[in-house]
Amino acid sequence: MRFVPKFLLSAMSPDHFPDASRTFDAPEVAFLGRSNVGKSSLINTLLGSKEAKVSSTPGRTRAINFFALHDGTEAKFNARPALIFADLPGYGYAKISKSISAEWPKFIEPYLAEREQLALCICLVDTNIPPQESDTLLINALHAMQRPHLVVGTKSDRLGGNQLTKSLAALKKAHGVDRVLPVSSKSVGGVKTLWPEILNVIQN
């Protein structure tokens, strides 16, 4: 399936979330993770575009950025999007963690807990560092909210086969999950496996 992406809006308040009547109640897929884990890079890789702004400065994304995915051509932009991607602010970077944490209850937690259109959460964890408690807390929170979620291990191209196997095993054990899908925005490894997981939300 070919999608044409279009930046929709940035939201820093529940009042700014996309109006379901204007997006025709399209299912939303949220991308979450620590600052600099590669959320925007993965979104761009999935879309084959540069819609999501990538920065080398951790924590640059401070709003929820929404992208509408249309099946086909630009001529269909007034029609119902097939999907909406939501790029959420990162967390865990020391210099900005306090300010980000202060903003989460204002609009990010309500989005995760109450957004009816939210169909899947993609939780990104870095395969190149030890498991992080902040990631575990997020995954546990999504489980408590009964939000469907998938844990994805980023930057997998930087590790050799045995190293990657050990990293994935450690991540699964620490986060209490049965599966961590390794991906790489650089080599595009794992992206073809991830897409069907995302497309399932359209059919459900």
Rank of each mutant, 00 (worst) to 15 (best):
F3N: 05
P5M: 01
P5K: 04
K6L: 11
L9S: 12
L9G: 02
S10G: 14
D15P: 11
H16T: 01
D19Y: 08
R22H: 08
F24Y: 12
F24P: 02
D25P: 00
P27S: 00
E28Q: 15
L32V: 10
L32G: 05
L32N: 08
R34F: 05
R34C: 05
R34D: 06
N36P: 15
V37C: 09
V37D: 11
V37H: 12
V37L: 08
G38R: 13
S40D: 14
S41F: 08
S41H: 10
I43A: 03
I43M: 14
N44G: 09
N44E: 11
N44C: 09
L46Q: 07
L46C: 08
L47R: 06
L47Q: 09
G48F: 03
K53C: 00
K53W: 03
T57F: 08
T57H: 11
R62I: 08
N65R: 10
F66V: 09
F67A: 09
F67I: 15
A68M: 10
L69V: 04
L69T: 08
H70V: 04
T73Y: 14
K76A: 06
F77N: 07
F77V: 06
N78A: 04
A82C: 05
A82I: 04
A82G: 08
L83S: 08
A86S: 13
A86E: 08
D87I: 09
D87Q: 11
G90Q: 05
Y93S: 02
Y93W: 15
I96W: 03
K98N: 07
A102C: 01
W104N: 08
W104G: 01
W104V: 12
P105N: 12
P105Y: 10
F107D: 11
I108L: 13
I108N: 08
E109H: 15
Y111P: 15
L112W: 07
A113L: 10
E114T: 11
E114Y: 08
R115I: 04
E116K: 14
Q117L: 12
L118R: 14
A119L: 02
L120I: 07
C123N: 04
L124T: 03
L124Q: 03
V125Y: 05
V125R: 07
V125L: 04
N128S: 11
P130H: 06
P130N: 05
P131E: 03
Q132R: 15
E133K: 02
D135V: 01
D135Y: 02
T136D: 00
L138M: 15
L138E: 07
I139E: 00
L142T: 00
H143R: 15
H149N: 12
H149I: 00
H149P: 02
H149M: 10
L150V: 09
V151Y: 00
V152C: 04
V152F: 05
G153C: 01
R158I: 02
G161V: 02
N162A: 11
L164D: 03
T165M: 07
T165W: 00
L168K: 01
A169Y: 01
A169C: 03
L171Q: 04
K173A: 09
A174Q: 02
D178H: 02
D178L: 02
V183Q: 06
S184D: 06
S185E: 03
K186G: 00
S187P: 11
G189L: 07
G190Q: 04
V191R: 14
K192V: 06
W195P: 02
E197N: 10
I198M: 10
I198T: 09
L199G: 08
L199M: 15
Q203I: 12
